[in-house]
Computed example of a mutant assay.
Amino acid sequence: MQKKIDFRSDTVTMPTAGMMAAMMTAKVGDDVYGEDETVAALERKLSELFNMEAGLFCPSGTMTNQIAIKCFTQPMDEVICDQTAHVYRYEGGGIAFHSSASVRLLNGPRGIITPEMIRPEINEDNIHYPNSSLVVLENTVNKGGGACYTLEQIAPIAALCKSKGLKLHLDGARIFNALVETGDRAADYGQYFDGISICLSKGLGAPVGSVLLGSKETIHRAQKIRKAFGGGMRQSGFLAAAGIYALDNHVNRLADDHQHAKLLADALEKASFVASVMPVETNIVLFKVASGYTTSSILNSLKENGILCVTMGADTLRFVTHLNTDADQIAQAIQIIEQLKPLKTL
């Protein structure tokens, strides 16, 4: 039986042989006691890379994002973000549950918001309004088809937040995809953000883990919140070692994923069952199904022919390229797309 080509997400990757070797030989200790030197090395490596003071290793990007929001808000505050933002749509209502904060939603093109959009949504000091305290950006934007912020776009947002006394957090779930695409330097990010969440288990291919970056004061508070969230891990250096290996070996190869995504997009543009394809910048391909088809019919037809993907709305499907989708699989997928004859609905 032929193995299916899995475009559902870049979270489905398996550790490489080199990564497994690094994990199995990691020096570990009890991280809750601050004794795991591999965890400390990962936190230090990323905080230095992004020019921030400290880091905190957590099980997931959802946890790092929610800890950051908890650090930067008080009950009755308001978080400003795009309506597509992962922190709003895909984190289980965590902003309300954990932080008792409301959310002010913007509608940026492909999830990219600007100072001009943010400024009028910052509440004045009024007993009727929640206190605007935090802006969250996502880079790359998942529901924006992997759209990237550049540092040139981020800088004026950071300046606005500073002038208005708001904190600025980055959900950097796929930040290295953005860095590879834009050519910006990670070290230039620290000056703009109060918190940065770095995910290691997507394009970088680690099995588990994200790191929250911030000031020493922020990370000290975040450690206690992580404990309350149940995120304190013990010999987690085995997992941190995978993150270190990924940072040392899997960043530059993200360019291959981006090229593969563009090849898939070109094939989908020509397919009869596709109405449109969102512009591709990184490793995410979003496409709308043509009239007469349904997402479920296309999803099932692709699956029957060996391709797995997911829906991203009533009329949209998503492909994500990653470490485990090589050039041969991309060529095979393109051939399947070109030959696919899904049934139309009446």
Rank of each mutant, 00 (worst) to 15 (best):
L340I: 07
V277A: 07
K3N: 09
Y189T: 06
K216H: 13
Y245I: 00
M278T: 01
S100W: 15
I244C: 05
E53M: 03
A241N: 05
V310S: 02
A327V: 01
L212K: 05
G144Q: 12
N177S: 15
T325V: 13
L247Q: 04
V251W: 10
T345L: 07
L323F: 10
K164S: 11
L340H: 05
G231L: 08
F97T: 02
S236I: 00
F287A: 02
T25K: 13
H250V: 00
L213H: 03
T150K: 09
V103R: 06
R110K: 13
N300Q: 09
Y90V: 12
D10C: 14
A331K: 04
D171P: 06
S197P: 08
I95R: 09
F72Y: 15
K344I: 03
A22I: 08
E269C: 09
S297Y: 02
K227M: 06
M233L: 13
M76K: 15
K202P: 01
L263D: 06
G55L: 13
I69Q: 04
V39W: 15
S301K: 10
E124A: 12
T64R: 07
N142R: 08
G146S: 06
V211G: 00
F176G: 05
M20K: 07
N123T: 07
K216M: 05
R318M: 11
G231N: 04
A222G: 03
G165D: 12
G165V: 09
D188C: 04
D184G: 05
V285N: 10
P207Q: 12
L204E: 03
P207H: 15
L264V: 04
E91Q: 15
L105D: 14
F193D: 04
G209E: 07
T84K: 13
D77A: 11
G230P: 00
M24R: 15
I244D: 00
D326M: 01
Q235Y: 08
L263E: 06
E91V: 12
F273H: 11
L264C: 01
